[in-house]
Design a protein around this nucleic acid. Structure first.
Length: 561
DNA sequence: TCTGCCGGCGCG
DNA sequence: AAAGCGCGCCGGCAGA
């Protein structure tokens, strides 16, 4: 569990202040990295990776394995008992914000028979007991290890940064938006489009960036819409619409990822977002600052490796339906998923007639669509893949009834809140107001769609964590090559391939050019290993689309046969 | 002037 | 072609 020994043989290291202490024995701060390096097989335990591991990285060292008490606690509190009672319940002394843990940056190493003098050790013991009481400790442990490995990767990627070419970014901005006016700062193309829109609306002052004002101007011009959102405007036959939609597209780029973003977020050729592992309720990562998870496709060309290096960019095709096939053990869906394109497989099986239909049917099945084309196609999918569909349908009905669901590895969806329960019981009472019944039905439907999607999105996030952890270990095994680069991404990454980006089902690895093939193989092998770890021998595969980004352009790799 | 909410849209 | 899940971020705006 802890790499070496068990919860009883722990050594406590205190990184507070200038001194580093091991048990009651002080370690010089400068030796912290050496302490870590000297124990390559240890699973390090600490309250918060963003504090403890960040300082270790800055000191020039890395660790192979970790146990992040804060992240693990969040999972464990509801993994065994969804109501959050029990040894890790909210009444417990140790919580996410316990200052005695976080502020001291404690960490624990596998060592010999040190007394558990610290709360972190007590917390770790509670967590290990909780894992042991789970229905499937092996799966839950895999999740906790994966979550913690993710926290390591998040810190490493933050330090290394995503190689970002500001010149390419600026060129895309001026090509798309035009030159900025020296007087107002408004890009030329946007100003022209705004003029066209105002002329077509017969209103030369309306602020296009204010939805209420724009809506009134649209109505005055005879355009009957209830909102100014794109999907509604697109249907309207009016000369103002086309330039307006284009204006909105450009305004979005300017506001979200324009010159100001570049100025604020890109330094020394690196974009350094803060990743938040487990930040999404389903277990997906969130990000904080810089919109790391929302970089528009248009700006992807700005991702460029250093000279002599490459970026290996890999993503999984149709991760969520593959995961659904695996967790439901639906052999027919797994058969459709064999090869590169699951949607084509569904067409070949005769469930629907076109790839587009297959796509909408699958998305509808996972999101709970009830209307439209997507909603109409779902029943056909249900007939063709009853095993997989039963799993998501059951998850939906559990949610509608106020129950909860869990991912494949055991992350629990939150229970309904008090408001939801009150509404449900009010609607269930004799002679309830039809309006209340209607609201309750809608709330039940919302929750059903949430729990339906939760098990799939959450399990996909678990697969991705396994992939990330496996890949990280394989990259480390490749070792270092070549001369150190002259940049500021930190000695730790100067000569070895390292992860620089992760987005739900995609990773990027920055690597010396001569290691490109080895990295590509590592990414593929990691995906294979992640599938095995999650689903054992069940025959579901996770094919990757891999491209290698060179300094002077992209070299697409042939898809494997 | 500050704070929190909302519409809208980028990503998966 | 369509409105079903999960996010973060921005500007506008209403209320404090």
């Amino acid at each position: 569990m802890l790499g070496r020994g068990d919860a009883g043989s722990l050594e406590l290291v205190d990184l507070s202040g200038d001194g580093v202490e091991s048990g009651r024995r002080p370690w010089p701060a400068a030796d912290a990295a050496a302490v870590v390096t000297a124990r390559p097989d240890t699973r390090w335990v600490w309250a918060d990776s963003a504090r403890a591991y960040r300082s270790i990285l800055r000191a020039g060292s890395r660790v192979a394995r970790a146990w992040d008490l804060r992240l693990c606690r969040r999972i464990l509190r509801t993994a065994v008992d969804p109501a959050g009672r029990g040894p890790l319940g909210p009444a417990d002394a140790w919580d996410d914000t316990a200052p005695s843990i976080e502020d001291e940056g404690l960490f624990v190493v596998g060592a010999q028979d040190e007394p558990s003098v610290d709360e972190a050790v007590a917390e770790l013991r509670r967590q290990l007991r909780t894992v042991a009481s789970a229905p499937d400790p092996t799966r839950l442990t895999l999740l906790l290890h994966g979550e913690s490995a993710g926290a390591l990767v998040a810190e490493e990627m933050h330090l290394a940064g995503l190689p970002w070419d500001a010149q390419v970014h600026e060129r895309i901005l001026t090509d798309t938006l035009g030159q900025r006016s020296p007087a107002s700062g408004v890009p030329e193309r946007m100003a022209e489009l705004a003029d066209h829109v105002r002329a077509a609306l017969g209103d030369d002052t309306v602020n296009l960036d204010s939805p209420p004002k724009l809506l009134r101007a649209l109505r005055r011009a005879g355009i009957q819409v209830a909102s100014t959102s794109r999907w509604e405007l697109a249907d309207q036959p009016h000369p103002a619409i086309e330039p307006l939609l284009e204006y909105k597209r450009l305004a979005r780029l300017l506001v979200a990822n324009g010159w100001a973003w570049l100025q604020e977020w890109v330094r020394d050729g690196r974009f350094r977002p803060v990743y938040v592992p487990g930040g999404v309720v389903t277990g997906r990562w969130a990000s904080s600052g810089g919109g790391a998870l929302q970089i528009p496709r248009l700006l992807r060309p700005a991702v460029r490796p250093d000279r002599g290096w490459v970026i290996v960019d890999a993503d999984v095709a149709q991760l969520e339906p593959r995961v659904l096939a695996g967790m439901s053990r639906d052999l027919r869906m797994a058969e459709a998923a064999r090869g590169r394109d699951l949607y084509a497989g569904i067409v070949a099986a005769g469930a629907v007639s076109t790839r587009e239909e297959a796509k909408y049917a699958v998305l509808g099945a996972m999101y709970g669509a009830t209307t439209g084309q997507s909603g109409r196609l779902v029943p056909r999918l249900r007939r063709a893949y009853p095993v997989a569909m039963r799993l998501v349908d059951d998850a939906a009905s559990a949610g509608e009834d106020g129950g909860t669901v869990q991912t494949w590895l055991g992350r629990a969806a939150p229970q309904p809140d008090a408001e939801w329960l009150d509404l449900a019981s009010a609607a269930g009472a004799e002679g309830a107001d039809p309006l209340v019944r209607d609201r309750a039905r809608r709330a039940a439907g919302d929750r059903g769609r949430f729990t339906r999607n939760f098990i799939v999105q959450g399990t996909a996030a678990e697969w991705a964590l396994c992939w990330l952890a496996e890949l990280r270990a394989r990259l480390d095994a490749l070792g270092a090559v070549g001369a150190p680069r002259a940049d500021r991404s930190g000695e730790v990454f100067a000569t070895r391939p390292h992860l620089v980006f992760f987005l739900h089902d995609e990773v990027m690895v920055h690597a010396p050019r001569e290691m490109a093939d080895a990295v590509r193989a590592a990414v593929e092998a990691a995906a294979e290993a992640a599938g095995r770890r999650m689903f054992g021998s069940f025959p579901i595969d996770f094919p990757l689309d891999v491209r290698v980004i060179e300094t002077d352009g992209v070299t697409p790799h042939d898809p494997p046969g």
